[in-house]
């Protein structure tokens, strides 16, 4: 009986999953990944052969177009603030006393010196608009293969392994056009809050460099407290 139940369950699961379209998967993932009204206390650790660095950050996310990040402590002692407002991004360094607009080539550089590029966290476009997406699956993952269809896509080829149970990518792989694996994005841990699965520890791995990766852990996540709109202004950034 137990055995039959499991088989039925698996078949049901299979049917259910195979019924999932690309859009369904993307939508479910987006629900987990895209945050509104969230406050995080997080730690970013950057590992490289040159030495390790870490910083503690407070992040306020109203929606994907209103993000404020405050570095409250870093191993180098530097403090800075970062504001994403619509499509513009600003960096404020208190010791310099002024904010700079991050644009052009700076977008391609690592966010706060990490392996995440500013672009990784600034992309507002729908994946569908940028990539030609195909779906495969195995017993554990929906595998989304995304090929750039626009000239200005951030990546040429990206594979996303979405966990069937959590609808979070376990791993995203970034390839060159010649199919060489360049970067890996891994969700190491997540937890369920208010009905959505929130990643709590993520890794970005640069495979072109030995032992070079960035780890981001979310120590405190608050999805309920309302964030004042005034936080997402240049005035607040430069306060």
């Amino acid at each position: 009986m137990k055995k039959i139940f499991s088989v039925v369950f698996l078949i049901t699961l299979y049917l259910a999953s195979s019924a999932m379209s690309i859009d369904d998967v993307l939508e479910r993932v987006e629900k987990n990944m895209v945050r509104t009204n969230a406050t995080y206390l997080s730690t970013m650790k950057i590992f490289s052969e040159d030495g390790d660095r870490s910083m503690q950050m407070k992040m306020y996310v109203k929606d994907e177009k209103n993000v404020l990040v405050e570095v409250i402590e870093s191993s180098e002692g530097g403090k800075s603030r970062f504001l994403k407002k619509n499509d513009a991004m600003w960096l404020f360094i208190p010791s310099a006393g002024r904010s700079v607009l991050i644009k052009g080539h700076m977008l391609k550089e690592g966010f706060m010196g990490s392996n995440f590029s500013y672009e990784d966290i600034s992309e507002n476009r729908k994946l569908r608009d940028i990539y030609e997406i195909t779906l495969e699956e195995d017993s554990l993952y929906y595998i989304l293969t995304m090929k750039a269809k626009t000239d200005d896509a951030p990546y040429k080829l990206k594979k996303s392994y979405v966990m069937k149970d959590a609808f979070l990518p376990k791993k995203e792989e970034i390839y060159s056009s010649s199919n060489r694996l360049l970067k890996e994005f891994i969700i190491e841990d997540y937890k369920e809050m208010n009905g959505i699965n929130v990643p709590t520890r993520i890794l970005m791995n640069d495979l072109l460099q030995k032992e070079n990766y960035t780890e981001m852990t979310y120590d405190k996540i608050d999805l309920t407290t309302k964030i004042p709109d005034s936080y997402f202004t240049k005035a607040y950034l430069e306060r």
């Binding site: 391609k108 200005d152 896509a153 990546y155 040429k156 060159s176 056009s177 010649s178």
Partner: peptide, 16 residues
């Protein structure tokens, strides 16, 4: 060697 850069359009890519 792997040479990694951005294409004319700005896409992250690499060539062997």
């Amino acid at each position: 060697f792997i040479l990694q850069s951005r294409t004319g359009g700005g896409t992250f890519d690499a060539i062997d």
